[in-house]
Design a protein around this nucleic acid. Structure first.
Lengths: 215, 215, 215, 215
DNA sequence: GATGAATGAGGCTTCATTCAT
DNA sequence: AATGAATGAAGCCTCATTCAT
């Protein structure tokens, strides 16, 4: 009855605790489905603290988005493609991207939820912006290198291609529940992810390595 | 307050009115964000009628999903690919699919919302099931024909490919708001859709027409 | 969808049908808990008919009360005690009363419900009034006869005694659910009723046959 | 509108305030007839608090039942019968019981209401159970003492007798409204209660002191 | 006579937010 | 910094009743 009283008195830590709990809750139900009370329960301190630290549910959601996009950015920065041959490099990029989404289902729900609302929270954020510039650069370098070596077709629109790479994985993961129903498939089966990843690689590389751009 | 006392006494019409209003509202805000009161306002009769006809917000949502999936199915059945050469046929399928989603933004929000909730409503529906079987068959026929003619690679997984075709368009459309921010692009520009469609066709056909499956 | 359509076109029969269904529903849940829709379902015709025949839920409830009290009155009139010896007569009256309530649990819920509301419906009825006059008379005759014969004590207040006779059975039956909990007994056991009836007879006759009114 | 902004911040007091207001409202109209809004009005704070403290209307009702049964239990514990002669002791018990119900009309409505619903709330409570064990013991002791002294008959079923003692008073009080109509009596007259109490004592003691168990 | 679509007031409950302590 | 009591607007749903057909 009394108990808990974690009484951190460590503002930074408390702020992170809240953020983590909020991420879980928003990831579970989306922005509209999330409950401030549940977030408080999750991190074990009081509801009032959330308002003390973040002001409102909306601002908290923005903070969560910023946090998870930041994480993605760091993840992306960790990816070094310079040492790879072009084909291997693209494969690496595809699997890296795919795996990130596969391992961070929270990300998908958060972004889904945000898109339902027209990205109003993202637009208010000053931190999230041009997040994929670095990765885009890396991909561009690979594409150029591959074109020069004659293994890749030329004149590929980098951003469109990157969107396609994301799309092939993300869509599958984000819509697995509904796709399972309308395709009458079990998309949560053990090898489901690896089959999909393999297919995505085939499509992207099949396209890139096909130098007859006359289609 | 508004134009009440319409008193149609035309149950079929009323049922459709409710469904239409519900689709609009759910499409605007997702399941959780939608308000039953707003739906009632939209169709101009009393709120109680919604419950008279559909029982609950959940059942209404299921009805909306069934309705829109049914519509998609009909749209798909209208698509005849037999007369097309394989390449033209696949192009037709891609643009048909792309355009459906582009012209039905409601569909995307509804399905997004449903996936956030783990497709619990879809799973309760008995009508929505194996919806893409017909289209899958059509694509399979094209792939076989193309392979026989030597224009397409062999042994392509039809369902995975179809998911990819959808993904390339759907993801772009569903995540346009957030992508715009993180890619710093205006994805609502006039030619944005046609650029994307062209790219999707390039990727899919680049892949299909690349007969070196050794990548 | 179409079906039912019993279409009686027999007003008297329809009226009785409604009354029967209403009695069941009111007996199941009391006045407040009863639902007009459920009553309509029970009798298989439309809700509007209820209003056509009885005007309102309140008036319907009054009709149900009048109906069941009338039934009780008839049941009581059927009881002839003239041929009994006083003691046997009183026993007969006790068991008759007890059995009526035991066999008509509806009666108890209806009356309970009415008492919660301060008998406002009964007071509006012109039919229910002095309902126990005949039975009271019969009891009085027995008491006088018994007193004359020296088997019963004298000067017993007939109405109070009759209320006691009812009380000993009715209270047990009406409060069986709560009594079961607070007395930690299974009052729905097979012999529960006969044990109670025997006890009620013992108490009343023990009292009546005890001629030392000096206690 | 009323005296809002009381802002007690005294949880214990608030909890009791709610309970008191709920008791009044439930007692006025029974469970089904009671309105959560009215309860809030009665205790002067916001409706949401009821849910903060008790979770739901049902749980609140359970709390009210537990509270009033607890009160009854305390009242019963206060009753000391050891110093009384058997006859006087039984009289004391009868009047004590009778007066409790006479002075707590809420109790009767609450229990009535609960019985209409099959005691579903009581059954969920863990507190209310075997509530009359102590009183039953006291009565048993009196009966044994009286039997030994030769003033009471032997082999009386204590629980049945206690139920009868309650019945004679409770039924009269709980059904006063309907009895008044069917017996054409004014049961709210000044001496009505004392007449009834006297009669109940006569019946019980007439029974107990009648040692001819041959009836 | 009979239907059930339609109403609207009101029922119970939830929830983001505020604020006294 | 931290709590959780308290708020009030709004959410979903129910239900007695009316009325066009």
């Amino acid at each position: 009855m009394t108990a808990k009283k974690r009484q951190t008195r460590d503002p930074v830590r408390t702020g992170k605790l809240i953020l983590g709990a909020a991420r879980e809750e928003f990831a579970k139900a989306g922005f509209e489905g999330a409950r401030v009370d549940k977030i408080a329960e999750r991190f074990g301190l009081s509801k009032g603290l959330i308002y003390h630290y973040y002001g409102s549910k909306d601002e908290l959601f923005i903070a969560v988005l910023e946090d998870i996009y930041q994480e993605l950015r760091q993840e992306n920065e960790r990816l070094i493609l310079d040492d790879f041959e072009p084909i291997a490099g693209v494969k690496e990029l595809i699997s890296h991207t795919f795996n990130y989404f596969a391992e961070h289902p929270e990300f998908i729900v958060l972004v889904h939820s945000e898109n339902i609302m027209g990205a109003t929270h993202l637009q208010k954020s000053t931190e999230i912006n041009n997040l994929f510039e670095p990765l885009s650069k890396k991909l561009e370098e690979l594409l150029l290198r591959g074109a020069k070596q004659g293994v890749f077709r030329k004149n590929v629109d980098t951003k469109q291609l990157y969107i396609s790479i994301v799309a092939l994985g993300y869509f599958f993961l984000s819509n697995r529940h509904s796709l399972g129903v309308v395709f009458n498939m079990d998309l949560f089966a053990d090898d489901s992810l690896s089959v999909r990843l393999r297919h995505a690689e085939d499509v992207i590389l099949g396209f890139l390595c096909n130098r007859d751009a006359n289609v």
